[in-house]
Design a protein around this nucleic acid. Structure first.
Lengths: 157, 157
DNA sequence: CGCGCAGCTTACGTTAACGTCAATCTCCTC
DNA sequence: GAGGAGATTGACGTTAACGTAAGCTGCGCG
C-alpha cells in the first residue's frame, strides 16, 4: 500500500487550475492538451485503479458525465481528482475533502456563504500548519536518533 | 475521530528523552516527577482510552510490567507511547512505528545492525520531508482558494 | 462468429485501529 | 459482607477506503 512513487505529473507554471470555476472569473478557454479522459487515462496518470475512481464518484467527489454507459471525465474532473489525491496525501478523509471541494463550487453564493467558506479554508490551513509542526518534530526526533547511531558507529572504528 | 485537542503536554526543554536507552550512553538517573504510571494515568495524560493502550501492547508497541494482574508503565513506556502518538499524527502505521521503535532498542547491536538502523532512519526522514512538501503544496492551494474567496467578498462591497 | 478487452453494476471481502460489551476479579470501604 | 470503582480478558462490532470476483454489455478484428 505504500508503493506510491509520486506518479502525478505536475510541472511548474502559472496554470491557473481547471478548478475554482466557481470563484475565478477568468476561466474562459485555455485549451491544454486534452479535453476529456476515459477512466483508464486518469487511472494510469495518477496511479490509482479504475475502481478507485468509481468509488470516488460514489462519494460524490467526482461526477463525470456519461456517454452511453461509459464515464467521460473533463479537465475539471481531472483537477478535482488531483486535489483529492493531494488531500489524501496530507491526511484528510474523503469526507473532509468533499466538504472542501464543495467550497470551491459555491459559485455565486451569497456573501454569508462566502464568509463561511473563507472561515473553513482558514481552519484547514491551521490544521495543516499544525501537522507541519508535528512533522518537523518527528523529523527532529529521527535525526536525533540517527545522529546517536552515527556516533555509535564512529566510536566503533 | 478528529476530536483531538492535542492533549499531550510536552513543553520545551532539553529533556534527553527517556527512550534511546539502547543508544544514548547518558541515561544514568534523571529522576523526573514520577517513576511509574497506571493505565488510566497515561490514558488521561495522552487523551486515549485504556483500550488503546492494551491494544498497543498487543501490537508489541508497549510492554508494561505486571503487578499482579495490573499493568504498570515505566517512564520508558511513557516515552514510547509519546513517540507512537507522534508517529501516528504524522501518518505512520502502527506497524511502521513498531519497526522504528525496534531500532531504538538495538542496544549494543553489531555494526551491521547499526548501519541498517541508520539507513532506516534516513529513509523515514526522507519520507517525512516529502510529506512536508505535500503539506506545503496543500497549504498553498488552500491559501489560493482562500484569497479568491476574499476577493469575491471584497468585490461585493 | 467467436474472442478478448474495456467498461459497467452489484455485492461481498479485507485491513487497520480501535469501540463496545459481557463476564470476572480484586481491592477498598462502609 | 455487600456494594462499588477500576482493572482484566475475550470476543464481536465498526468505519474508511478500497479490493476482488461474478456476470453483463458493447466493440473492433481476423
Amino acid at each position: 500500500m505504500r508503493g506510491n512513487m509520486d506518479s502525478a505529473g505536475s510541472r511548474r507554471g502559472p496554470v491557473r487550475s481547471d478548478l475554482a470555476s466557481g470563484f475565478d472569473p477568468e476561466h474562459a478557454s485555455g485549451d491544454q492538451t486534452k479535453e476529456t479522459f476515459r477512466i483508464r487515462d486518469l487511472a494510469r496518470e495518477f496511479g490509482v485503479t479504475a475502481r478507485t475512481l468509481r468509488f470516488y464518484e460514489e462519494c460524490e467527489l467526482l461526477a463525470p458525465r456519461r456517454e452511453g454507459q461509459d464515464r467521460i471525465y473533463s479537465r475539471r474532473d481531472r483537477a478535482r481528482l488531483k486535489l483529492v489525491l493531494l488531500g489524501k496525501k496530507v491526511g484528510f478523509s474523503l469526507e473532509e475533502i468533499r466538504a472542501m471541494l464543495d467550497l470551491y463550487d459555491l459559485g455565486d453564493g451569497q456573501a454569508t456563504q462566502l464568509r463561511v467558506a473563507a472561515k473553513r479554508f482558514q481552519e484547514q490551513i491551521e490544521r495543516l500548519k499544525n501537522q507541519r509542526r508535528d512533522i518537523d518534530t518527528a523529523i527532529a526526533e529521527l535525526e536525533r536518533a540517527s545522529e546517536i547511531v552515527a556516533q555509535r558507529l564512529a566510536e566503533r572504528s
